[in-house]
């Protein structure tokens, strides 16, 4: 049906390459995917690295001046740029660095070599270049990745769910983590992962970021009901969502 398959390349910045690994682990799905797109550059599964591509999946946060130049180059070549995973979409765990003054963070990590290190605040991609599609999550949830790929091929936007993980979690009929005395970030975290972690006995770490319009005051009542401390919740949330610290700090203090 399609004349030519779009050429797809994968790039990464500051990250663990875990999201690309999700692709590599897709198994049969990956084969189906290659019938729709031609992968020209994917370090984890192939040796040659093509530089002629239309669709760029970019994993990782921007953390150096040279990163900025590199992502701008990728943007110039790519017709479609996709932020793959939490680091790229919200700065993810890398955002923790932004909690401290940059010099302090540098000296904590690099000690007396701090002066030689070229680093800036951790940024999600959209703070530097235009991003066409966001795939949230740490790591990305493969069924959602496939939805986004289909959207790219059909040239339609991907509508990110704008409701809480609780909605999906209830549909999966999980026992609420709060009933098990665990702090779970499901009530304020953007859905789309099909409550993946909770389905598997874990709790929600908020890796997909907040819904558009999280309840500012209401969180207090949850804390009250379950006897939790605001600091604990804030700390949980900081794990993935500190790059936009000002905003989230307000919500939870």
């Amino acid at each position: 049906m399609r004349k030519t398959k779009p050429r797809v390349a994968f790039f990464d910045f500051t990250d663990c390459e875990g999201c690309q690994l999700q692709f590599a682990n897709m198994g049969e799905g990956l084969l189906q995917l290659t019938e729709l797109v031609e992968i020209v550059n994917f370090r984890e599964i192939m040796s040659e690295a093509g530089q002629d591509y239309e669709v760029a999946f970019v994993e990782g946060s921007i953390t150096t001046e040279s990163d900025i130049k590199r992502i701008q180059e990728i943007r110039k070549k790519a017709k479609v740029l996709i932020a793959l995973g939490a680091c790229a979409a919200t700065a993810g765990v890398n955002g923790m660095k932004n909690r401290f003054p940059l010099e302090l963070a540098k000296s904590r990590v690099y000690g007396d070599k701090a002066g030689t290190v070229n680093t800036i605040a951790s940024l999600p991609l959209h703070k530097v270049v235009k991003v066409d599609y966001f795939i949230h999550g740490c790591p990305v949830y493969i069924p959602e990745v496939l939805q986004v790929v289909k959207c790219v091929l059909m040239q339609k936007p991907y509508a990110l769910p704008n409701y809480a993980v609780c909605v999906e979690c209830k549909m999966n009929e999980n026992v609420c983590r709060y009933e098990k005395d665990q702090e779970c970030l499901g009530p304020v975290t953007r859905a789309g992962c099909n409550s993946w972690c909770i389905n598997n006995g874990n709790r929600c770490y908020g890796c997909r970021g907040l819904v558009d319009n999280p309840a500012a005051d209401a969180q207090k009542d949850i804390l009250l009901k379950y006897g939790l401390k605001a600091d604990e919740i804030l700390q949980r949330f900081n794990l993935y969502n500190d790059s936009l610290g000002e905003k989230y700090g307000q919500e939870f203090k």
Binding site: Y163, A164, C166, V167, C176, A215, D217, A218, Q219, D221
Partner: peptide, 10 residues
């Protein structure tokens, strides 16, 4: 007080 988690309707 509502957090809009949607639990009540689900």
């Amino acid at each position: 007080r509502c957090v809009a988690c949607g639990n009540c309707t689900m």
